[in-house]
């Protein structure tokens, strides 16, 4: 399993990367940690002819407090999230979720920006950012724009990110109130069969691997906001979702898991 041949350029800055994206067009791909892209290239499911390495942009690897939110550089690695004092104090859920991604070696390479751009509905961190009400800062030829996580994901491995844009920062509202993350899988290193992220006591509930994108459990959130019990709200967790079927689960079982895990997450978050 060997990638098809490609050319490789190191981006000197975000601006440089965007310029290169413009030059090379849609046959080019940004390379961050590479832990989603390189396996796909080895299986030749992805065959970009030009890789633009943004993984060396150390000035995009940071976790800072800033006006009530936390600003995280796109090239911040999962391992940095996992060990961040800032997150431990101001957003422990993101820290915890980062510690559950893949395995330690994967977390040493994978980046938050790369994970979000990859938009895998089975990934942990996109759902966490969604539940936390995060904002994604994308930079393109015409400058930066901010995209709410709820507007970002559009389909399997698809987002609103334009071909010549890259994620440069993720903003997460600071908050330590009532959070929990439930990840159900068969092996520790695997993707979630279903995952549930609960933020702010249940104001944000998002689901992993329950559709073509990370999705908010809107019905459950609304029920809870309307005063429903945790059990009643959790019973609505899968409403409106279109869960996929694979070797581990069909839609019915996934929906069941979403309800069970949502109840557990809400109970833990409010316990």
């Amino acid at each position: 399993m060997i990638p098809a041949a490609f050319d490789y350029t190191v981006a000197e800055s975000a601006e440089h990367a965007i310029q290169l994206l413009g030059e090379y067009g849609d046959e080019s791909k940004l390379l961050a940690g590479g832990h989603s892209l390189i396996p796909m290239m080895k299986y030749r499911l992805a065959t970009p002819t030009q890789l633009i390495d943004v993984g060396r942009l150390d000035d995009l690897a940071y976790i800072n407090r800033s006006n009530g939110h936390i600003a995280i550089g796109a090239m911040t690695k999962h391992a940095q999230l996992e060990t961040s004092d800032v997150l431990a104090a101001d957003c422990p859920m993101l820290q915890h979720v980062a510690s559950l991604v893949g395995d330690p070696a994967v977390r040493h390479r994978g980046t938050l920006g790369g994970t979000l751009a990859h938009s895998d509905p089975a990934s942990d961190l996109p759902a966490a950012v969604l539940a936390l009400g995060g904002t994604i800062v994308a930079q393109g030829p015409n400058g930066q724009r901010e995209i709410a996580a709820s507007e970002f994901f559009t389909g399997y491995f698809e987002s609103v990110l334009a071909d010549d844009e890259m994620i440069v920062e993720v903003k997460i509202p600071a908050g330590t109130a009532g959070w929990n993350y439930q990840k159900f899988n068969r092996r520790a290193q695997d993707w979630a069969i279903v995952g549930v992220a609960v933020a702010d006591g249940g104001k944000g509930i998002s689901l992993v691997n329950m559709g073509s994108t990370p999705v908010r459990a809107t019905a459950a959130e609304e029920a809870l906001a309307g005063g429903a019990s945790i059990a009643d709200a959790a019973a609505l967790a899968a409403d409106g979702t279109e869960p996929p079927a694979d070797l581990n689960a069909d839609a019915e079982y996934r929906s069941h898991l979403a309800r069970v895990l949502t109840q557990r997450a809400l109970e833990a978050a409010n316990g």
């Binding site: 068969r186 092996r187 290193q189 695997d190 070797l247």
Partner: peptide, 28 residues
């Protein structure tokens, strides 16, 4: 608990890689 070589109705192996063929780790 974990392992099975699964085929679809056309005889395609559905879990040829260690991503899907679940050799357990120490954690399990």
């Amino acid at each position: 608990l974990y392992e099975e070589a699964v085929y679809d109705e056309y005889g395609n192996p559905l879990n040829p890689s260690f991503m899907d063929y679940l050799v357990p780790s120490a954690a399990e």
